[in-house]
């Protein structure tokens, strides 16, 4: 039960890339936050959902060989820090790309994919990954 509810809790943010924008300073946060770290109490109750374009650039990337069990079938996979056009940086995989094409600064866009499989016959979880533009 506990595990399933943990899966569903963040689902809409992971499926639709929904950020929180501070109503006070207008800064965008992804992953979403309920309190703006710049405005503190001024932001309480003013964080608004904002759908992101899913477009961004590679800040840095790595090819992961030593993978946790939920990712064993994907290895080696590309993990990247992606700076979204709206400002926030997030951690996500880059898929369907030739490793040699990867480079800091390359444009990427979000796609909807299977993320991980927790154990044999376990829960399969979905969310965003990125592809090269």
């Amino acid at each position: 039960m506990g595990k399933l509810s943990a899966v569903w809790r963040e689902t809409s943010h992971r499926y639709r890339l929904v950020a929180h924008q501070c109503g006070n300073c207008k800064k965008m946060y992804f992953p979403p936050r309920d309190i703006c770290p710049d405005c503190h109490r001024e932001s309480i109750g003013k964080m608004m959902e904002k759908e992101l374009s899913g477009k961004g650039k590679i800040e840095s990337f790595t090819i992961v060989h030593d993978a946790p069990s939920a990712f064993a079938r994907q290895r080696p996979y590309v993990l990247a820090l992606i700076r979204l056009d709206e400002g926030p940086v997030l951690t996500a995989q880059i898929v369907d790309s030739d490793f040699s094409e990867l480079e800091a600064g390359r444009k990427v866009r979000a796609v909807f994919r299977k993320i991980r499989e927790d154990g044999k016959g376990g829960i399969i979880q979905y969310g965003y990954k990125f592809v090269l533009e």
Binding site: E59, S60, T62, V64, P68, L79, L81, T91, A104, R116
Partner: peptide, 20 residues
């Protein structure tokens, strides 16, 4: 929720810092 969930490991995060 936002690093390990997507395949982040301590080594992978260090690698992201290292490459940049």
């Amino acid at each position: 929720e936002w690093e390990a969930f997507f395949g982040g490991t301590p080594a992978a995060m260090a690698a992201l810092s290292a490459r940049k």
